[in-house]
Design a protein around this nucleic acid. Structure first.
Lengths: 113, 113
DNA sequence: TTGACATATGCCGATATCGACATATGATTG
DNA sequence: CAATCATATGTCGATATCGGCATATGTCAA
C-alpha cells in the first residue's frame, strides 16, 4: 500500500500547500479556475486537478456561470480538522505543559550524563 | 516533483491516519514504541517509522528510560493547523452561509434547466 | 562478554502523487 | 455549423509513500 489518496480524507486534501492557498483565495468569494491559476502562478490544468481533489472531499463547490465555472468554498468540511486539533488545545495552553516539559528535560539531562 | 515529504510540514505529517492515532494515544501520557504498536495493531518497525516522522516535524519528543525509549506529545506544533482551519470558522458558523448556499443552489437549478 | 530485550534502519514492491504538456470536452457567439 | 474561449482529462517521468520482512544498533543484566 502507498500513501493514502489525497481524496480519501480532508486531512490528505489539505496536506498540499497549493490547495490550501486555493481555499484561502476562495474565502474572498467565488472564482473561475483561470483566475485561481493565474493568481497562484500555476498552470490551468494544475489548478483544475487541485480543484478536483478539493471537490471530491467536499471542500469546494462548483457552479456553472455561462462559459465559466465558478468555484466556491464549502468550508464545513474543515471543521473536523479544527476540532481534532482542538482536542490538543490544553497541551499548548496549560502552564502545566511548560512545567512538564521542564521536568522532562531535567530528567533527560540527568540520564544523558 | 512528487507529493511533498511527510516531514516537510505538520499538515503532511498528520495526513496519515495512523500517525493521528498515535498522537491521540499520547495524550494519555508517554509511551514506548512497542506499546503503541501493539495498541494500534501495527508492527514495531511501522510504529517506529511513524514516530520518526512525527519527531522530525516536532510533534513528538522522545526520552530514554532504561531499556525503553518513551515518546511524548509535543502538541504545540498542532496549533498552526488549528489556527489555519480556524480562519474558516465564520464559513460554518454564520447563518449567512446557509442563506448564501441556498441562493446559489437556486441559481444553479435555474441554469441547469 | 554473552544473552535477552527494545528500538531503529535498510531494502523491496506496489501505488499515488505532482507538474508539464498535449489534447479532449463543453459552452457561447457569430 | 464553425470558431473561440473555458475547463477537464490523459499520459509521462521523477519521486516518495507505506507496509512487511530481515537485520542492525542500543541498552541492560548476569
Amino acid at each position: 500500500m502507498a500513501r493514502a489518496a489525497t481524496t480519501s480524507d480532508v486531512f490528505n486534501a489539505i496536506a498540499e500547500q497549493q490547495r490550501r492557498e486555493i481555499l484561502v483565495l476562495l474565502r474572498a468569494g467565488e472564482r473561475p479556475v483561470t483566475e485561481l491559476a493565474q493568481e497562484l502562478r500555476m498552470t490551468q490544468p494544475g489548478a483544475s486537478k487541485h480543484l478536483r481533489v478539493l471537490r471530491e472531499v467536499g471542500l469546494v463547490r462548483d457552479r456553472k456561470a455561462g462559459k465559466q465555472r465558478l468555484y466556491g468554498l464549502n468550508a464545513r468540511e474543515l471543521r473536523p480538522v479544527h476540532e481534532w486539533t482542538g482536542g490538543f488545545e490544553r497541551f499548548w495552553n496549560e502552564s502545566l505543559d511548560r512545567l512538564d516539559r521542564y521536568v522532562q528535560d531535567l530528567k533527560q539531562a540527568r540520564q544523558e550524563k
